[in-house]
Design a protein around this nucleic acid. Structure first.
Lengths: 333, 333
DNA sequence: TTGAAAGCGCTAACAT
DNA sequence: ATGTTAGCGCTTTCAA
């Protein structure tokens, strides 16, 4: 069957130990021995059993990744950043999706632990108590990417959601908008709360009454944006601007407005968030917040590895820079 | 530290073996013993070391997944299908991206082997000889999802690319189109060849001369579609229909035509492929081929598991059904 | 520079 | 119904 250290040892006449050390590039081996063993390894097509090594070394060089929905382009991009960076650092990833379901998240946490991941990068639900409890006693380093968990904010790498929505809302208000629709993201996700907070805060600051019917719940998908606006229009709601939880929602909004022949941005201004690839190719091109998704994944891995190397390294919240991209869906000066 | 079987054995006074069997739900254990041990396990927060078990059992319940680019919504959806189905079947996934680079694919293949995956689902490059050689001697069951490798077609689960593009092209020709632009996908990917073949075949069949300048190479991304049409327009190329390798390309095409105020579908008909979520929300809504992406992932896992269970199970190419969705970007009857 | 021995945590084969 | 023994393939002492 497959070659093992011991079959190589038998073949070459050296001990298992020596073979192991040669193949791991250990020093203190004669050049001749090294050459002999390497040649035999090649001939016998030796491939190390990483599992056995992991078990012995008590590290798997595996990073667990918990995502809400890896088919969402926003997460997909983050995960790609994670995977690429991990690979460069000699790690690999074990990916699990939760579909925003706390029970799935609990299960994932246990499985990743059983599979002995060295660390964890998660996009968690917000404040489910079971989930929180599991994170708190998770025995390996962990980081939250782009989302946070109540009480564990120090583990998070974030964008400043609240500030961003605040700034955008304020900008709209200053331009004279008085009826600004806000379409939220999925329940139980920290960004949904933070971004909504930014909107509300800006309204209050500028004495704009908060009208509940202008805050429309959504699951953060294209169809949600479409339905939200479609319904708002049918209800006869009047508004001159729409701020969307993300670009997917905004894409749906654009479509709904377009169907009703409502011109964007002349009649209604629309802004998204995330700057997905598609944003700039929509018609009109979407004004949105550029958030460094790939970079978030990369940063999360690099930071996590530091924590893996030094278990005493203190955690602290990290914020990544973002930048508004004003395109055609808003009126710009 | 973390509880192990032997620490549980010490605690309860039973042997390691008994503890192991209780926790795995083995029969032939007295109810009292079961209860005692389960309680102790809970109290000591025992989490099995899956790595150790894997090594002993010589199966990891892990499926390796090789994707070209998991941030591409098409692959992302397939991978989601893989992950969900695998989880249901007690498997988990190790995800690696190749960026369509054969060298990365070779490296991935070796790493997955070292990590002792039980099987592999891959979206491979087309016919790189090193890659092919590695698949041929890959010691575990493997399947190709949505793509194929020359000489290993039996391992593939596919959509009938050639036929689909053929039918679509033929449809356009029958409607009177004489200048049909075809925008290809990335080099080295089987679908690129097969879909192009369908286009060419339909042209030949209907005595439409193949004009090389109407076949435009692209990498399969939005910006490629945009650039392709932008360039074609600037070159003064005349055409009345565009068939795109996929929906991303088509989205770019739509945008480019829109910028030039060329009306779709009245002046130019456009069709994509894949039916991404976004397709139906573009303006105009994109006519495209619905391919069951999630289902492809699911089918690949279920089929792979059959091969894992029965190493002698013969491989055979599987085709999944697709369906054209005619929406606003084409003139329909 | 090399080898012998121990053992990571688990499961499987065989005993009792 | 439970325990004993062996060993998966590797790395890590420790000794020579």
């Amino acid at each position: 069957m497959a070659a093992t250290l011991s079959s190589l040892a038998k073949e070459t006449g050296f001990s298992v130990n020596t073979v192991s050390r040669v193949l791991r590039g250990d020093k203190n081996i004669s050049a001749k021995t090294t050459q002999l063993i390497k040649k035999a390894a090649e001939e016998m097509e030796y491939i190390p059993n990483y599992i056995a090594g992991s078990m012995r070394r008590k590290e798997t060089k595996t990073i667990g990744v918990i995502s809400a929905d890896s088919s969402n382009p926003f997460f997909a991009e983050i995960i790609l950043g994670i995977e690429e960076t991990a690979k460069k650092q000699g790690y690999h990833i074990l990916l699990m999706n939760t579909e925003e379901n706390p029970e799935n998240e609990c299960a994932a946490l246990k499985i990743l632990q059983a599979r002995q991941v060295d660390g964890l990068i998660s996009m968690p639900v917000y404040n489910d108590e079971h989930v929180m409890a599991l994170y708190e006693k998770f025995p390996h380093p962990y980081l939250f990417a782009g989302r946070k968990v109540l009480g564990l904010e120090k583990h998070a790498i974030l964008f400043d959601d609240a500030r961003t929505t605040h700034d955008l809302t304020q900008r709209f208000i200053k331009k004279g908008h008085r009826r600004i629709l806000y379409i939220t993201g999925p329940a139980m996700v920290s960004n949904t709360f933070d971004r909504l907070y930014g909107y509300v805060y800006a309204c209050i600051k500028h004495n704009l009454p908060i009208n509940r019917s202008y805050i429309i719940k959504s699951g953060g998908h294209i169809k949600d944006g479409y339905k939200a606006v479609d319904k708002a229009l049918k209800k006869g709601l009047e508004f001159t601007a729409v701020i969307c939880f993300n670009d997917l929602v905004a894409a749906g909004v654009l479509r709904a407005l377009n169907e009703q022949k409502i011109r964007v941005p002349e009649k209604i201004e629309v802004a998204g968030c995330d700057n997905l690839d598609i944003a700039k190719y929509l018609t009109p091109a979407l004004s949105t917040l550029e958030v460094p998704k790939h970079r978030l994944g990369e940063k999360a891995v690099l930071e996590l590895i530091e924590h893996i190397k030094d278990k005493d390294r203190p955690y602290k919240t990290i914020y990544l820079k973002t930048r508004m991209m004003f395109r055609e869906s808003t009126l710009n000066d």
